[in-house]
Design a protein around this nucleic acid. Sequence first.
DNA 1: CCTTGATCCTCTAGCGGCTAGAGCATGTAG
DNA 2: CTACATGCTCTAGCCGCTAGAGGATCAAGG
Lengths: 150, 150
Amino acid sequence: MLQRSIGNLAKATGVKVPTIRFYEQIGLLPAPQRTLSDRRVYGEAAVGRLAFIKHARQLGFPVEAIRDLLRLSDSPEQPCETANALAAEQLSAVRAKIAQLQVLERELQQMVDAACIGEVANCRVIEALHDHTLCAGEHQTERRPTYAGL
Amino acid sequence: MLQRSIGNLAKATGVKVPTIRFYEQIGLLPAPQRTLSDRRVYGEAAVGRLAFIKHARQLGFPVEAIRDLLRLSDSPEQPCETANALAAEQLSAVRAKIAQLQVLERELQQMVDAACIGEVANCRVIEALHDHTLCAGEHQTERRPTYAGL
DNA sequence: CCTTGATCCTCTAGCGGCTAGAGCATGTAG
DNA sequence: CTACATGCTCTAGCCGCTAGAGGATCAAGG
C-alpha cells in the first residue's frame, strides 16, 4: 500500500507543501493519518483528490465552488445539475473577465501607439491617464463577483 | 477657492471615502489640510490627482506603477521613456492574462458542451476535473508577476 | 436650544489564496 | 555521528481595498 509523505505528495501532484497543508486547514483535503512523530501520511486517494483540486483551481474555480464540486464527486448518486451550473457560471465569469481585459487592451494599445519621445510634459501616456475623456471605451470596473481569480 | 470634504471629493471622483483614506495612507495622495476638528479639506488639485489614480487603476496598473507615473506627472521635465515602458509592460501583462483566460474558456466550453443530464456518476464536468488528460490545451498557471490585478 | 441623522475621525480586522519565515523536532545518508 | 533534508506548528505578509466598532462633529428642522 502506497504511503506518501507530504513532500512526496507535493512532488506527485505539483502542489507545494504549504499549499497542501493550507487545503487541509480550509477543509478541502481531509486530515490524513499521522506517524508516531506526527507526520502526515497520505494514501493514493489523496493524489486523486489533490489533482482534482489543482485542476479546478487552474480553471479558476473559487475554493467554495471546488468544495461543492468535491462534495458532488464524493456522492455520485446526486443529480449533476449543480456541477453543470458551476461550470457554466465559471465559464461566464471567465468570458466576462476576458471582455473586460480586452477593453483595457484596446486603450493601452492606443496609449502605447501614441507614445512620445521627449519629456513628460508632452507625454501621451501621462496625458491619457489625466484625461479620461480620451478613452474610447468606457472601462467600468465591475467589482463584486470577481470569481475567476487567477 | 473650492474646498471639498472627503465625502464631496468621493462624489466628485467616484472613489469611495475609505479608499481615499487608504490612498493617503499608502502615499498616493498627499495628506491634505485639516479643519480645527480634524476633518480633511481638499482643493481642486486633489480631484485631478485622484481621477488620475482611478483611471490608472481601472487600466489595471498596480499601485507601485501608479506611484511612478504620478512622480513622472509631477516633474514634467523628465524624459517620458519610463511612462512608455510602464504602459507597454501593462499592455503585455493584460495580453498575457487574456491569452491565459482564453485557454480556460476553451476548456470550460468543452465541459459545458458535454454537460450530462443525470447523475454525478456519469457527469462529464466532474470527470473532466478528475482527468486532466482530457484537456486539450495545457493550462499552465504562470504564477509570479500577476501584475494586471483586476 | 435641542434633537436627529449624516458625515467625519481612527483603529482594527477581514477578503482570497496562498507564500514566507521562525523555531523546533525528526528522518536519512554517508 | 554528523550533516542536511524534511517535517511540524504558528504567525505574519502579499494586494487593494472593504467593513465595522466606537466615537466626535456638523447641518437642518422643530
